[in-house]
């Protein structure tokens, strides 16, 4: 019998997984906002080209994904992470293209990725609900 997806079907959009990612982001931020009885005013993400997520598409999907949530109207800031590899042979670290992870210094292809595949919700900036200022008691 075929599995008909439930909630995730309604949360899917043709050929754009960034919307799924965006819904996940909104849910994560909402959970934090609920906990602190606040609304989200700013989100900071850290995204590398090798995460498979496109920052521009995330920005476009965000207003749709956040409509009616505690994140509606929040600023979405995305910091790019550079693609950086470390070479175990010549011990050098280099910033490289996403599809060329070879050590540019010595040509060794057995490098290890230092950064570039991140897809991280770094922080959430919250604002108290009107009249609810007392809930913001935890340290920044």
């Amino acid at each position: 019998m075929p599995v008909r997806p439930g909630s995730y079907l309604t949360k899917s959009w043709p050929a754009m997984h960034e919307l799924s990612v965006c819904y996940a982001l909104v849910e994560q931020a909402e959970a934090i906002a609920r906990q602190r009885k606040a609304r989200v005013v700013r989100l900071l993400l850290h995204i590398g080209p090798l995460s498979g997520v496109e920052a521009g598409l995330l920005r476009r999907a965000f207003p749709l994904a956040s409509a009616g949530s505690a994140c509606e109207g929040a600023a979405l800031d995305i910091e790019d992470a550079p693609v950086s590899v470390h070479c175990p042979e010549c011990k050098k670290s280099s910033v490289v293209a996403a599809n060329k992870l070879i050590c540019p210094a010595c040509g060794n292809w057995r490098t290890s990725l230092e950064s570039g595949d991140e897809m991280v919700l770094q922080s959430v900036e919250l604002e108290a609900w009107a009249g609810g200022g007392d809930v913001l008691s935890s340290p920044a």
């Binding site: 990612v21 994560q28 931020a29 606040a38 900071l44 991280v120 770094q122 900036e125 604002e127 920044a140």
Partner: peptide
């Protein structure tokens, strides 16, 4: 980012910043 003067250090005008550092697909 969270040290004094950092991007998310303060809670000016009733705002606060919460460090999350979670994968965007943590639920998945």
């Amino acid at each position: 980012l969270v040290e004094p003067g950092g991007k998310f250090s303060h809670s000016a005008s009733g705002r606060e910043s919460v460090e999350v550092l979670q994968n965007l697909l943590s639920e998945n």
